[in-house]
Each structure stands twice: as structure tokens, then as C-alpha cells.
Design a binder for these strands. Sequence first.
DNA 1: AGCACGCCGACT
DNA 2: GTCGGCGTGCTC
Length: 830
Amino acid sequence: VPQASTYIDLSIPGVPLPILTYEVPESLGRAPIAGMRAVVPLGKRIVTGFITEVHQRTATANIRAVLELPDSEAIMSEQIIRLCRWISHYYHAPLGETLKATLPQGMDIEGERIIAMQTADIEQIESAIGRSKIKRAILDQLSTGEVISEDKLRKTVHASSISAQLRDLSADGIISIETVMKAPTAKVKYRKAIRLQAGWQREAQIRELIELIEKRAPKQVNIIALLWSAFQKGVVSLPMQEAIESARTGSSAVHALADKEIIEIFEEEVTREVSITYEEVDKEITLTDEQQSVFATLSAQIDAGEFAANLLYGVTGSGKTQVYIEAIAHALATGMNALVLVPEVSLTPQLVYRFRKAFGDEVTVMHSRLSIGERFDAWRLTREGKYRVVVGVRSAIFAPLDNLGIIIVDEEHEPSYKQSDQQPRFHARDVAVMRGWTESAVVVLGSATPSAESWHNAQQGKYQLIEMTKRIAGATMPEITIVDMIEARKMSAAKGSFSDDLLARLRSRREQSEGSIVFQNRRGYAMHIECGDCDYVPHCINCSITLTYHKDKQLLQCHYCGYTSRLPLNCPECGSKELHQQGSGTQRLEEELQELIPETRILRMDFDSTRRKGSHDMMLTSFAEDGADVLLGTQMVAKGLDFDRVTLVGVVSAEQSLLMPDFRAEERTFQLLTQVSGRSGRGAKKGEVVLQSTQTAHQVFTHILEDDYRGFITIELQRRKALFYPPFARVVLITFLDDNDGKAAAASRVFANLIEHKADFFKMYPPQAALIKRINRKYRYQVFCRVDKQKDPDGLRFESVLKAAETEFHKRRESRGVIVVIDIDPYNLM
DNA sequence: AGCACGCCGACT
DNA sequence: GTCGGCGTGCTC
């Protein structure tokens, strides 16, 4: 009797193939559903893919069978799949890769080849080895009788690939190769726990038992007493390890009780969760009229249960966080769930703390510093409905929450929302709006300095503009002063990086025990080494980048690839001993300030000093409580901090970000300086801000001094329109990477030629070397396009041009091996 | 002759 | 992306 077969369409990440069709054998005993994973054979490999479609007929020949359906139900919702389809088209990323990005790491089920020795016949082995060194090394390793995976074997024999050798040896009958499925790295964690057996849960029995064994087995009595007192408090089981420790005994007492069937030892699921180390004194919270009115708008939208997109433009200190909390509480109360995106969790301990305070066990946090297990648990338990509020970074936009009521994107202008290092290169804010649309949720984009894109969308009526113009009770906007550093240096009114003006204010804050923040508006540490006698500057051997000097480790380090080298004693070019430090990183700045104001207590906060888990929280707590005078750091000190005692913010070189070769330089400078200024005067006392700059005449500073966002963004949008930049055009950056300079350059020209003749709805700049021409041993060339949004509203026209060009490009032999990176709406043009 | 390496097409 | 088949060129 012929049976109807079931087929699935599978999207496989990491394989540049179209969607493939497989047959599902009935022997698997499980019906496939879109959104489940499927483990399948692909060539000689075993890989995991995502089911996007289930059907009963197929026109495809040569169909292979699914090996396993590991999920008992769909692990991604239909809406998430729909969202991924959009992302895949808009951002020109493979669907499989995009679907994979919605899951935590370590869930892959892959094949692994296990190698074992098959014969001990020396002659046979010697003849199979022949003259191959690799084969000899492989068999030397295997002769111990060890059974080992191909991967481990390859590493122990130090070869780049041993697949050909293994194939030969297997054909000669020397070794056996078996492909097995490797267990995923992310697993549910269990621990041993103990509980009283059902028959031993009454007081009389326990008393009787204790009396009986008191003399002979006092340790067992301890355990029983512990379990009984917990039981009375409603705690049914205790972790075995902890119980043994508090009973001051060993496992034998526990096992004895288990043997007597008084207690039971069982495996208990453990949730891995990070505890937060940041704490603050809780303030009395009542909503201001303005907060109340924003809340009213949002709660009405939530009740309507329809998609709505809002731009919440609220000045720093206007209390956006509290509005978020109230709106989420409202969504939860009506049975809906909430998603909150933040630029970087470790930079917003205060926000996380307040959410934990407000929502307790219902909230989970997702970010990159979590371990694989922690991330897996956060994802899994969210999907199971244990968590109803997810606070997380960019990737948390895919959190498996159903019944979404509200999605909040805090600090929506932050560049960290754009993923640029791997596919899909999506913008989490834009995906959030799309997710809100597909799931009929309310979307709130919050910022004190909205991005040009969002402001434009609000003006166009795509987003509803909601404003919060006042700081909450007591706090006023700080007074901003600008110091012309060129003038100050001429007049000898500056010492090193600090103007006399800023120094005087820092001194007076210290005397009044008020806090100050000194902000170094510079990415990383710009400390390099220069020879005083020739023009030698140490560069990275892999990248066209000067090496950065780290004084504490006495090392030179590449900011891009991580290459390190020792600090040379003499100049390698001319032998001179005159090697000087140039530039001023945060470390140098700290030393300078310490020298200028010896009695001041400085807390330095940058990437290096906060690398350890939780050290960021600890520094902030210590600045808030024990009161160092100055918090000195990079962009980290600009973000989300809310300290009443800070009344002065100094920016050392306010022009730095302005001089970056990027069309967003002005916007970023305005955002950064407004943000850092907002750290001053959040309490009752009025704050001050000192901006030191060599470019005081620049228009950006006029708007910053007047705290005039509208004035700034109006002019900025005019400029963007005139130059055909976003939000008026859609920017696409195509980068070509190769070890060989000429090959990368040629590839960029080939590709440019392939798209140029289609350029009736976009403009293309001719290909050129990237600003940093070499990173990680790869030369980089770029083609920059600006697509007319009117003529290509959803980006699909340009996508098809890219697709066609890529297909043609890969046919050319001169482009072989060249890596092509396509970034839609890029945020980093370097 | 035997082996390494690069090129190229297939992968459901 | 990874694999196998095939051709080329190098070494013993």
C-alpha cells in the first residue's frame, strides 16, 4: 500500500544553497512543523536546518531522508519566521543564517567523524603510510588504541586538513570512520536534590524517627531536621550539596537515608541566572504630569491591541525609564508581554536594576557577557513562559516572547543596535518596528537625541511623536560652557590636556564634595609610540593601523586584530632611544589629572578597567557611594548614569568625533555631547558642563550650547537631503576583502562594473580603498551606493541587482576567494 | 610513482 | 561552507 509522504523545505545556515527539500520518514514518530529544526545529511556531512515549510508533494528528484527532528514543538514562531524572511530580503542575508540568529549559541546538532584503528598488521600499515608524514602522524596517534574525533586528530597532528588522508586510510582498511551526531553544547543543567518521601511527611513520624536514630546516626538526624524545617516552610526539596554542607556531613548519611526509603535523591533542573551587583537607594516615585500623559497615550495604544510606532523624544533626566516601567506593567496586567532593548546591558546597570525591582522574577536579561548556559536558559524559559519581560541588547529583538504588547527601544539612536560584524547585518531598531507590525504590538523608540532617521519618520507621520520636555522635579538643565583650546594654549591657560577653566572647576567640586565626570571623547586609547629622531611609528603587522601603547602591561597592541608586541627599547629604524608616547588615552589622562590635582580621587572607567564581569557595576556603585571625586572615562561614562552628586562634566576634546570621516559625524557629536552633558545636575543642584574644543566655531557647538535639538536636527536634515544621504537615501556599503591587494581592488572594480549600468535608481561612488586599508591581513576595497527610497521603497529592487551581480561575480575566475561583505544601512563606514 | 595542492562542481 | 574528483607539479 503506497503511503503519502511528508516533505519539508529546509533552510540550512552556513551553506550557500537555496532551500532544500527532504523527506520525513514515519519511523521518526514525529510530525514536522515549520519552526522546528531538522537534522539531515548534506553530502558527507550531518547538519541542522530550520523547517520553513511542510508539504505532501514535491517535484524535486534525489530526495534524502531527515535523520532526526530534535524538537517536540516549533522553537520559533510563525511570526519570527515571517520577520526573518523580511530581514533576509532587506538586509541581503541568507534565511538560514537569519533564523539561526534568533536562537542562543550552542544549539547546533552536527555530525562528527570518529576515527578508530582497524588493524594491527605492521606491514599493511607501513604500506598504507607510504611516504606521507601526515598519515604517519595520524597512525602514531591512533596506535595507542585511542578513539578520537577528526577535529581533535587534526589538531594533534597540526595539519590544516586531514580529510584526504583519512579517506585513503579508510579505503585501505587501516582505520574506521564513523559519523555520529554531536550533542549540542547548550544543555539544561541538573543537580542532585533530596526530599522526604511521601510517607515521611508528617510531624509525628519525623519525631519518632529522630528519637529512634538520634544516638546512632546524628548526621542523618541533621539532614532530616533540615528537610523537615524546609518542608514546614513549604520548601519541598533541598539541593543535595547544600544540605550536606549545612548538616556538616558527607554524602554517606544522605545515601543511608535514601536506602532506608526515608528520603529520595533526584535530579532537579537548575536555572542559570546572573545576579546583579549594582544597587541604589530607591527614590520615591510619582509620575509627573508629563510622564502621566505619555503613559496614558501608550496604555491606550496597548489596550487597542494594534500596531503603533512612537518616537519618544524625552530630554535627559525627563524620566523615560519610569514611563517604560509603567507601560510594561500595564501590558503585563492585560496579559501581554514586553520586550526592552538597550544599547549595552553592562552600560545600563541602573535600568536593569529598576526593571528587576519592578518585575522581579518575571524579567530576564539577555546580553553578550552571559555564558552559553545562561543564554540558553534565558531563551528557553522565556519561550516556556516563565519570563514575561525581556531586557536585552540587539540580539534580544528575537526573544521568543509570544503575545507581545509592547516593544521598547531605549536610546534608539545608539549605533550598537546595528549589527555589522556578521550576517544578518540588521538594525535592531528597524527590526523592532517590523516585529511590532507583524505581531500587532506597540513600539516605543526612546531618545533624548533621536536619530535623523527616526526624526524624519516622525515628521513624515510614520511614527507618532511623543515629547517629554522637562526634567523631573528639582533638576534643571546644566549650564554649558565651551573653552577654545587653541586660544587657551596660546594664552598659556592650559596644562596638557586640561584648560585652567576646567581644572579650577574640578578643584572647587572636590572642595564641596561634589562629583565630576571627565569624558574623553575618543575611541579606545590613542596612545601610540613615536621615534624622536626619525619618523618611525610601530604599526600592526596585520593591519594598516598604528599600535596602541598600554602602559600598565608595557605592551603595544593592535586595536583591530589584537596583535601584541613588546615595547622596543630602541627605535628599530635608526636605533635611537628617544621613543615617546603620543596622543592621550584615558590612562594618560588619569596620570595628568592626578599630577595637576594631586589630592583628587579618580576612578578610571574604560574598556580595560571594566573587562572583568561585574567590575563595571562595582565601579559605579563605588562612585555613587564612597564618593571618588572624578569619574574619568570613555563613552561608557556618557551612558545612562544617574547620579545626583555629579554637578560637573568636562569633555576633554569635544571635536574628536566631529572630525571622523563619516556623514553621521555631526549627528554623533551632538548626541554624544548632549548625552554626556545630561549626566550633570540630575539632583537638586544645578549642573555645569565644560566642553574643550579646537573647533569652537563649528555649528554643532552652537546648538549644543543652546541645548537646541530641534535646531540641530532641522539643519542636519537639510544637509542630508542636499547631499542625498540617509534618511533620504538608503546607503549600501559593499566591501571586498582579500589577502592580495591587487585582487581585492580588481574584485571591487568587477563588481562595480556589474551594477553600474543598472544605476537608474541609485548612485554609486567608484570603488576605492577603505579608510583602513588592511585589517587582519586582508586588504579592503569598497563600493558605496545611495539608493533612491522613492524608486525602491522596500529595497527589493536593489536586492535583485545585488543578487544578479553576485551570481555573475562568482563566475569570474579573478574574483575567486575574494570575500564580499554587503551592509545595508551601515553605521560604520570604515 | 606517490603525494600535496589548487581548481571546480555538487550538495535536496 | 565542505567534500570529492581530477589535473599539475614537486620530490624521492
